[in-house]
């Protein structure tokens, strides 16, 4: 599969998906004007990947901020990852990064982990 590389902007996150390198990362700030327009290609890529995924997937999320519309899209992303475990029987783990002092980001991550049947690893970082 072709890797999906999207450069981060002021309002949209950076995306770095590379099946061959086993790298899956979303980072930065996310509050795009048109949420669906931005996230549709990302979800589409992940759906293709899901059909033909690696044996093990480490999915990293390192978002500093995201608005409620993005939250909905993230849920879609996580549902797709869930499918890899349920339908394909392969391993997936989500690495949820957050600043030490950012309780809110941790809280959101915990909430997602309760909603999605994918193992979450919570990882404190010092800086973005």
């Amino acid at each position: 599969m072709e890797p999906l590389i999207i450069a981060a902007t002021q309002e949209t996150p950076g995306v770095n998906f590379d099946k061959d390198l086993g790298k899956f990362l979303i980072f930065g700030k996310s509050f795009p004007e048109e949420v669906k327009r931005f996230f549709d290609p990302i979800i589409y890529w992940l759906q293709e990947y899901e059909a033909n995924s690696n044996e093990e997937t480490k999915f990293e999320i390192r978002l500093e901020y995201f608005n409620s519309s993005t939250a909905t899209m993230l849920l879609e992303v996580l549902y797709t990852l869930e499918k890899i475990i349920h339908d394909r029987g392969k391993k997936v783990v989500v690495i949820w990064n957050y600043l030490e002092e950012d309780d809110d980001m941790l809280e959101v991550g915990v909430e997602y982990s309760e909603m999605i049947e994918v193992p979450f690893e919570f990882n404190v970082i010092q800086d973005y």
């Binding site: 700030k29 500093e64 901020y65 600043l99 002092e101 950012d102 309780d103 809110d104």
Partner: peptide
């Protein structure tokens, strides 16, 4: 609402954060 403590700003362009 979360609007206040999610606001980005300050010297490093970070969120205000609920702790603060």
């Amino acid at each position: 609402s979360d609007g206040y403590y999610d606001q980005i700003g300050g010297p490093k362009g970070r969120k205000f954060m609920s702790r603060n």
